[in-house]
Amino acid sequence: MYPLFRELRAARGEEVAAAAVNKMVEGLLVMEEAFVKCSKGKPFFGGESIGYIDIAFGSGLPWFNVVEKMANMKLLDETKMPNLVAWADKFYQDPAVKDVLPDVGKLIEFNKMVMAKEAAAAK
């Protein structure tokens, strides 16, 4: 998903941005299918507790929130990927990660700074 985040951040123009968002949603739909298949009805990818896949994918969840807030849109859509949304909620609430995930507000400020530096360098 990281290359898609970069593609979206670099997108100039509505059509290019919309195409990047569509790619991200397609990727999330694949993750929805993978979650259903791997979790076998349990709360996390590997079962009852957080495992490696949960950590690897879940560490990017705050960035999904950044994109959603900055672009005023929804990537993790409950109607399209209900199992993944439920997983994300459980992941965020788990004591093992809830106090270590970065603050979305701080990530938004960081992202704005990076975007400004990239824009300045492009001139």
Score class of each variant (00 low, 15 high):
E78K: 13
A96E: 11
A96M: 08
M70F: 00
A96Q: 13
K90R: 15
D99W: 02
V104W: 01
L107R: 10
N72C: 02
D77Q: 12
N72E: 11
E78W: 01
L76Y: 06
Y92E: 05
G105D: 15
V104S: 05
F64L: 15
L76W: 07
V85M: 07
A71S: 13
T79K: 15
V104M: 04
M73R: 10
K74V: 15
L61S: 09
F91G: 05
V100P: 02
V100R: 01
A86H: 10
A86T: 13
N83F: 07
M70T: 14
E68G: 06
W87N: 04
A96L: 10
K69P: 00
E78C: 03
V85R: 04
P95G: 02
Q93R: 14
L76I: 11
K80L: 15
K98A: 01
P62V: 01
V97K: 01
N83R: 15
Q93P: 08
V67C: 04
M70A: 03
V85D: 05
D103E: 11
N83I: 06
K106F: 04
W63S: 03
V66P: 07
P102N: 00
L84W: 12
D99K: 07
V97S: 01
M73S: 06
P82Q: 11
D77E: 11
G105Q: 08
L75C: 08
F64D: 07
L75T: 09
K106A: 14
V100T: 14
E78V: 10
D89R: 15
E78Y: 04
P95H: 01
L61C: 09
L61Q: 09
E68I: 13
G105E: 14
A86W: 08
V85T: 10
L76R: 06
Y92N: 13
V67I: 15
D77S: 11
D77M: 08
D103G: 00
Q93M: 09
L101I: 06
A86R: 14
E78H: 08
F64R: 07
V85A: 08
N65R: 14
P102W: 02
P82V: 08
M81S: 11
D94M: 04
V67M: 08
M70R: 05
L107V: 12
F64W: 14
L75W: 10
Q93Y: 06
L107M: 15
M81N: 07
K106W: 02
K106M: 08
E68T: 10
V67R: 05
D89Y: 12
G105M: 03
A71M: 14
K90F: 02
V97W: 00
L84M: 09
M70Y: 01
W63E: 05
A86D: 11
P95Q: 02
D89Q: 14
D77W: 03
L101M: 12
V85L: 08
L107P: 13
